[in-house]
């Protein structure tokens, strides 16, 4: 009788880990609901100077899935010497304790692919992530981060060129172009990787070497 009872207890004890796994698995949906889809975890990796084939999917407000295919090359990462202004460019006026980096991104993409609302960040060798954001840098205003030429942007997400009434429509976006993106960083930050993304979880991550032009 005692031996039999011991066997039963052991069987129940063996079931305990299984019950724990089941409990964790059933609560794992919270991870998906609250966190997982909004984080960057589907990486397309590359290295500076090498074209990266990017395929990115997104869902519109009607739940319809769209896809963009493009080739992205991180051409150079170097301290910025000039920044754009409303009527051209001007020399960067450095601020102590900071470095303003210019990241040159080369795109090869069909003119009818929407590329608005892209995000760019720079991760340094210590793992710190500085985003390319529109902000004031001393008396200078850094431009908005865009992944297409400002004078000939591609279509918006409705699929049409955004025309302003009374203004000449902008020329179609070229198939190949280069855009500069500006990233404010601490003066002790050494760029290690550049990230480019539109909709999480997909992102492109390119290893860079600031000395490599």
């Amino acid at each position: 009788m005692g031996r039999r009872r011991g066997g039963v207890v052991r069987r129940w004890l063996l079931l305990l880990p299984l019950a724990l796994v089941l409990a964790l698995a059933s609560s794992a949906s919270r991870l998906h609901v609250f966190w997982w889809p909004d984080q960057l975890h589907e990486a397309t990796a590359g290295s500076q100077g090498s074209p990266v084939e990017v395929s990115d999917e997104w869902e519109d407000q009607d739940g319809e899935t769209h896809r963009r295919d493009l080739t992205l090359t991180v051409l150079a990462v170097a301290p910025a010497e000039r920044v754009p202004t409303y009527d051209g460019t001007e020399p960067v006026r450095p601020i102590p304790g900071t470095v303003l980096w210019e990241v040159r991104l080369g795109f090869e993409v069909e003119p009818d692919v929407p590329l608005g609302s892209c995000r760019v960040s720079m991760i340094d060798t210590e793992g710190r992530e500085a985003w390319a954001v529109r902000t004031s840098y001393g008396e200078q205003m850094l431009p908005m981060t865009v992944c297409e030429p400002t004078d000939s942007p591609g279509p918006g997400y409705a699929g049409l060129l955004e025309e302003v009434p009374g203004e000449e429509p902008s020329p179609p976006r070229p198939r190949e172009y280069v855009v500069p993106v500006y990233v404010l960083a601490a003066d002790d930050a050494t760029p290690d990787r550049i990230r480019v993304w539109w909709e999480p979880p997909d992102y492109v991550e390119v290893e860079v070497d600031p000395d490599d032009e």
Partner: peptide, 9 residues
């Protein structure tokens, strides 16, 4: 206030 990067006050 403004957004700033890691290590930049």
């Amino acid at each position: 206030c403004t957004e700033s990067s890691p290590g930049v006050a």
